[in-house]
Design a protein around this nucleic acid. Structure first.
Lengths: 227, 227
DNA sequence: CCAAAAGTGTTGCTTGTACACCCATGT
DNA sequence: ACATGGGTGTACAAGCAACACTTTTGG
């Protein structure tokens, strides 16, 4: 390795994950009590150091698997946090991802073991370091993504009613949406498949279940939601 | 420093800058011949290692100042490139920024000294490593930004005609725009200030010069361009 | 007078928004 | 029968796209 590389400073490099879930009609984030000093015991996002020979994407996947037991999670790069002093323990540059998971789809034993807890996005405890900023940025990122792409696949059950989808969007965008208009807009995108089953607990009439169509991939092209 | 930090692997961390300029009605990028092995002499983006006690933002600013002589440049985080093996010289994680500068506003001596050259975005030479991917992503990022925010401030002279602004947008979006509609849309945003001077070389009638209004900051709020 | 670019106006279409309204059904 | 949520229709406004038209002035 040449001097060019040899003389350059080396850095601790971490990934942190803002994990979104959806439960009780609320958007939630998954927080963990920090296990090491400084700030041991305080609430934080889950993270980990990036290994040699590992991309940050891979590191984030590994951290997610390790701490939730889930793989194949939707995950997206959000930002880089690198202010000197952001981590009082050492100079650490953190690459932040946000992820979407079905909060009840998993074996919860791993979460219990880590003392992880779901918190409503509107009401979570103080976080260590700059993690609150990360959460705020991640929410913006999610809102943006949801506005462009009809997201939610990852947060809802396999089949869901349009009411459920709308309530999810209301939770993400944090504002009420007109039921009729939402229905028409969403159906016009042609990415949902109507099933012949009805959900009958919420109303007497019953609401049809829908699921995301298989070929969303190329249908995804240019759908823009102004909601 | 605790074991938690001490045992973690350390990484070379770099910033790379996709520098956009605008000249001869063309969107251009600034490329530099690489000065070190491997791939010495080949065209590349300009970059540099991140120092201890320096944020990646600061590192990018420093790299820009060092290599163009310019400070206070518009600059935005784009992505992180971290695939193992992306740099054959060593394992380097690169944080990529894109920047907008007036390509003729500066003292060019620094650029000449570095043998830097402006290349049209539509026709630039092969680049080292993953730098071509960086340029493509940066163009997408710029297109997105331009679609949301009436960008161009940084690429145009202080005063400009609406034709110039439109031609810039055509260069960024890489498609022709209707002159009448563009004019109406842009003026409706109320961020341009009409001057009493005319440019008279392009037409007999002459076109009024405009400049960006001072208080664009808060006017920036919610302007969306669908062009 | 004519060409060429600046600038304005018109028209049709698509989309969003705010509702009113019918439908189905368990109590 | 009626309250409740599901689902559809309507009427207005806003915005976009295409293009016709008017203005100005140097050659």
């Amino acid at each position: 390795m040449s001097n060019f590389y040899q003389n350059a400073p080396k850095h601790l490099l971490a990934v942190d994950c803002v994990i979104f879930g959806y439960e009780d009609d609320q958007l939630k984030i998954l927080l963990f009590p920090r296990k090491v000093e400084p700030a041991k015991g305080q609430w934080s996002l889950i993270g980990g150091f990036v290994n040699e020979n590992e991309s940050t994407d891979d590191a984030a996947s590994r951290v997610l698997l390790l701490n939730t037991g889930l793989s194949n999670i939707f995950m997206e790069l959000l930002k880089v946090f690198s202010a000197p002093g952001r981590d009082p323990g050492a100079r650490v540059v953190s690459v932040v991802y946000f992820a979407l998971i079905r909060s009840n789809s998993q074996d919860d034993s791993i979460l219990e073991e880590k003392d992880a807890r779901w918190w409503p996005i509107a009401d979570y405890p103080p976080l260590i370091f700059d993690h609150q900023q990360m959460v705020e940025d991640a929410l913006s990122g999610l809102q943006m993504k949801a506005g462009q792409n009809l997201t939610g696949h990852e947060l809802l059950p396999d089949v869901f009613t349009l009411r459920q989808l709308r309530t999810l969007y209301e939770a993400i965008l944090q504002k009420p949406l007109d039921p009729g208009n939402f229905r028409k807009k969403v159906l016009s995108l042609n990415v949902l498949q109507k099933l012949d089953i009805k959900e009958t607990t919420k109303s007497k009439k019953g609401a049809y279940y829908y699921q995301f169509a298989k070929d969303v991939a190329h249908a995804n092209g240019n759908m823009i939601l102004k909601l």
